[in-house]
Design a protein around this nucleic acid. Structure first.
Lengths: 243, 243
DNA sequence: CACCGGGGTTGACCTGCATCAAGGCGCGTT
DNA sequence: AACGCGCCTTGATGCAGGTCAACCCCGGTG
């Protein structure tokens, strides 16, 4: 996350704590003051668990900076990431006290947290908030469905290319070469894609060898030709993935 | 769908057109009359396309009887089912005119359809409706995440067992042997599970051979021991899949 | 009756990814 | 410097599931 992004996030935070992003047109003054009253900030370091699977989740929150992951696991230890939270994404569902999945900080992460009971009261009181939350949920459903296509039908190479494209898109600075900091370890990438670490690694080197991407260090990702990357991703060049 | 189910569905329909299911506690008289005014019914036959991928979708709807599927496809023809709609499920997102995926009738299917502009007006007017829709969306997100775990990490045998368990659960009559009519062809099952037809077929015969399930005809599914089936599914015996 | 066509099953073979194992690189610690 | 530890890469090998092809079953139709 660049200094500019941080500034934008905090700027927006004054405007609309739920989205932590550009002003919400429908924000109303009384909602904002009530939200202000119940919010608090907290930071986790990369790798720390924010909520354990099945544990009570006494808050709802939105991501201010950094990156967190939602993960479901099976008894024998197999794991699948089921949510990737970047700045402005929202965690926690009203009306459910327990988290059905583990929430982990992928990078250092700062959340803007809302006391759950107070937040639920706000929801029932003010239609605007629940409508905005509805919209965000619908976006999330679309993202999840795109993700299912990836998990169910794409090859390893397409999967990796798709993920890299998603990251580049979210971090887009505008002018080529596109440049982004990978917020995920190889392990997290594998978990996202339904692959193993080794396969992810092999596909990354293959994409490098074929000139589709370049790396500067382990985390620095550059791409001269997003079109080529999207072609590798098997998407029809739109890929409205991940809300 | 049995005659009893049908009766329940129509019964509930008078009560709450959105869910087409047990009475919604929060239904209010004026909402109901407005919903009544904008709704209409239509039936499709098994195999018919209800909405094409990318086409305009001039309505929102809820499933009254039968079964429909949402499918995303790639340019080269690979397809992945991303939604399975059973009675009481809802299709169509307010605020988006075009369907991002294909909707197909898996069995003969009857929808209760709402004119989209009118429905959107109702949404902004009455908070209850959007709150109920929010709840349903959140359930759908949870189901999608469970589904991702299946697509990303489960073996073919586990996938098939999981799907059969889901169907049995939704059709549950209570007493063993559990009995259900499979609403899906092998092709649709394969599409749901991210497998090929052949693999689904092989796993089905394997599960039969191992005494986990029995079939009466191609569509009739019986199970004497749901616990055994769930064990094969790799779930920790809860599996709150598919809302 | 023969014919056809659509859905399902089964077998033989192949391949893409997982698995297992070794080694490299960067970094903090003694 | 030497060591250990995370994280990543690379190679060798195996297997689950895809692919291709044949065949079955069943209901509809001329």
């Amino acid at each position: 996350m660049t200094a500019l992004d941080l500034q934008i996030a905090t700027e927006a935070c004054r405007q609309c704590p739920i989205r932590h992003r550009a002003v919400c047109a429908t924000c109303e003054p009384d909602e904002l003051t009530r939200l202000e009253a119940m919010k608090s900030y907290r930071t986790w370091m990369a790798g720390q668990t924010i909520v354990m699977e099945g544990e009570p989740m006494p808050f709802a929150a939105s991501v201010v900076t950094g990156c967190a992951t939602l993960t479901r696991s099976m008894e024998d230890g197999r794991m699948q990431m089921v949510g990737l939270l970047l700045p402005s994404d929202f965690i926690g569902r009203p009306g459910r006290a327990n988290a059905p999945y583990e929430v982990v900080a992928a990078t250092d992460v700062t959340l803007c947290m809302f006391d759950r009971p107070a937040f639920e009261r706000l929801l029932t009181d003010t239609p605007h908030v629940s409508q905005r939350l509805l919209e965000m949920s619908l976006d999330e459903i679309d993202a999840a469905r795109e993700w299912m296509l990836l998990l169910g039908r794409k090859t390893a190479r397409e999967k990796v290319a798709t993920l890299l494209a998603i990251v580049l898109r979210r971090a887009a600075t505008g002018s080529a070469p596109l440049r982004a900091e990978l917020p995920l370890t190889r392990e997290a990438m594998a978990s996202y894609l339904g692959l193993t670490i080794e396969t992810v690694s092999r596909q990354m080197t293959a994409l490098k060898k074929d000139g589709v991407i370049r790396m500067s260090g382990l985390r620095g990702l550059l791409c001269d030709d997003l079109g080529a990357l999207l072609a590798e991703a098997g998407d029809d060049a739109d890929g409205d993935v991940l809300s």
